[in-house]
Design a protein around this nucleic acid. Structure first.
Length: 556
DNA sequence: AACGGACAAAGTGGTGTAAA
DNA sequence: TTTACACCACTTTGTCCGTT
């Protein structure tokens, strides 16, 4: 968003650009991932009308049988909200089918949500200024392209107006938001609509992260607008993706899934609605192989081709077609007209009386406060015990799995419950944890602790478990020493006989390394070693050491 | 120094319960 | 049913200290 805002500032005083310039500008910030080979798309039989749970389940079962899949494979079924919702229960009992929420439908509903929420705040009047004729159709979101167009135009206009206003007043956005409630409302619209746009761009350009994150940010609006079904499904969808790294990686790495599926959805759904077919919506499944099926479905594929043309038309960006029939001509002038009207409204003494906002029943103080209270918040769809939270713990060095974690002191701690940091905290408070425990800080406080007992061999522990990164070496908190001046420290260091420590005794190590030279009771003696052996021996000592003194004064 | 026993403290697995 | 939390019994680890 900062990027978006920043470029809006740049354009502040040029008034000869329109929303497509902005679109291009945004596009430069992201890498468009679309270099992929076309996936195999197979059209499957249509089942019963998916108006009940059992019908959907039957349909999914049928897909599963039709497509022969290995034991470890599963089908990802992309579906719209209604099917997705019914499919959830099916997935729980059958791990061969995984549901993905079709993002195009989601995007469509995001728009509808935006309209619902801001309908009381004058969004229709703005649309009217932009020249939209059929406001009732706008509300229902009948025509996806037209609606998205209008919302985008309003978004651009609002963004421009707010930034111009801020520039005129020479105030920061935060200050303005404090004093002007009207702007606050539309700034909120700007933000939410930005999430929607980001989601949309994420779909169009195959940027999975952008799409996913913005959907996450937008999700709290669904319940507010009374779209409980979508709220539930989106939450589940996000949950599935968050918890399935394989799926996430697939969506991210293979833009084909990411890009074509929502795109295809667009085509199917729009085509079907154009032909007047009701209640029957197509599922699209993407599977890696199986050309036999493809041959069998040539007829369906031919139909598909027709529809795909429409997809491509939209996908390439043939916006002229879609904008003309909907009375959005000369958009540039209209946008700027709206921008100026908005600025006037913002500047006027009593902005609520402005014609733009007439007949807006929610546009009073109470309504505004309500909306502001529901404003953008960081929503985490997370529980208390999560991996993220655990890894944020001060003492967490590495997470081995959901029940095991390394403390920074090197101690492995087994957790009471999954990702529950309680035991880790408990451990850190104990004397055995050398990171936090003051009792253990013998020697010079704040310089380096004297480790009373050399650590037992820890290498085997780390070597045997390559996946978790070995715990980082203990970083002791360095506190300023009150009683020593720097020269004294230097003197102390120079008088200290040892250079490194924390390892096992040299005799033990020596006997272990050269069992042939020092059998049984024969004491270790470094003089019995040759040059190479001494080098090896010293290296081993350094490897096992946990600290060493740099006499030049650099602490390590 | 190495070893081993006694003791204390910390770690772990299991269970139960309340709340959502 | 899931999550969070507390409690308890048992195991493991660390420390002290005397003996070899």
């Amino acid at each position: 968003f900062e990027k978006l805002l920043a470029f809006s500032e740049n354009f502040t005083y040029q008034s000869d650009f329109d929303e497509s310039d902005i679109r291009n500008q945004i596009m430069t910030y992201f890498k468009v991932g679309c270099n992929f080979s076309p996936p195999n798309v197979i059209i499957l039989d249509a089942g019963d009308p998916p108006s009940s749970d059992s019908a959907v389940h039957k349909c999914l079962k049928m897909y599963e049988n039709e497509i022969s899949i290995g034991n470890n494979d599963y089908i990802n079924v992309v579906a719209d909200e209604a099917i997705f919702r019914r499919g959830i229960s099916f997935c729980k009992t059958n791990n061969k089918i995984k549901m993905i929420l079709g993002q195009w439908h989601t995007s469509k509903d995001m728009m509808s949500t935006l309209i619902t929420i801001f309908s009381g705040y004058g969004i229709f009047n703005m649309a009217g200024i932009l020249g939209v004729r059929f406001l009732d159709k706008l509300e229902k979101g009948v025509d996806f392209r037209a609606t998205s167009k209008v919302l985008e135009l309003i978004w651009v206009a609002v963004g421009l107006a707010i930034h111009l206003y801020a520039k005129k007043k020479e105030q920061s956005l935060d200050d303005i938001l404090e004093e002007n409630k009207l702007i606050k409302i539309w700034y909120l619209y700007f933000q939410w609509a930005s999430y929607w746009r980001a989601h949309w761009f994420g779909i169009r350009w195959g940027i999975f992260d952008l799409q996913h994150e913005s959907l996450k940010a937008f999700s709290p609006l669904f319940p507010i607008a009374g779209k409980s079904n979508y709220a539930r499904s989106v939450t589940h969808h996000i949950y599935c993706i968050e918890n399935n790294s394989r799926l996430r990686a697939m969506l991210r790495v293979a833009p084909s899934v990411n890009l074509t599926n929502p795109g295809h959805f667009f085509a199917y759904d729009e085509a079907l609605e154009t032909f007047g077919v009701k209640f029957v919506k197509q599922n699209v499944t993407r599977i890696p192989t199986d050309s036999e099926e493809l041959k069998l479905k040539i007829k369906a594929t031919q139909l598909e081709k027709e529809r795909t043309d429409m997809l491509i038309c939209d996908y390439i960006g043939d916006y002229v077609q879609s904008s003309k029939p909907h009375n959005i001509q000369s958009r540039k002038e209209k946008i700027w007209e709206l921008v100026h009207q908005l600025i006037n409204a913002f500047e006027s003494e009593n902005p609520l009386k402005n014609p733009i906002f007439e007949f807006c029943n929610n546009l009073n103080n109470k309504g505004i406060d309500q909306l502001v209270a529901a404003g953008p918040r960081k929503i985490h769809i997370q529980w208390k015990h999560t991996r993220t939270r655990l890894s944020d713990n001060k003492f967490c060095a590495a997470i081995i799995n959901k029940r095991e974690v390394f403390c920074k002191c090197g101690q492995k701690v087994i957790l009471d419950n999954d990702y529950d940091e309680k035991r880790l905290n408990e451990h850190s408070r104990n004397s055995r944890c050398k990171i936090n425990n003051q009792k253990r800080q013998l020697g010079l406080p704040g310089l380096f602790p004297v480790l009373p007992n050399p650590k037992k061999v820890r290498e085997d522990l780390e070597d045997s478990s390559p996946p978790p990164p070995p715990p980082s070496p203990p970083s002791f908190p360095n506190k300023p020493c009150p009683g020593l001046h720097s020269e004294q420290i230097v003197t102390y260091i120079n008088r200290t006989p040892a250079t490194y420590g924390g390892a096992r005794r040299r005799e033990v190590i020596g006997k272990e390394m050269f069992p042939n030279k020092f059998p049984n009771k024969l004491p270790f003696n470094s003089k019995k070693l040759n040059k190479e052996e001494i080098t090896d021996f010293n290296q081993q000592m350094i490897v096992e050491s946990e600290w060493f003194i740099d006499r030049l004064g650099k602490k390590n």
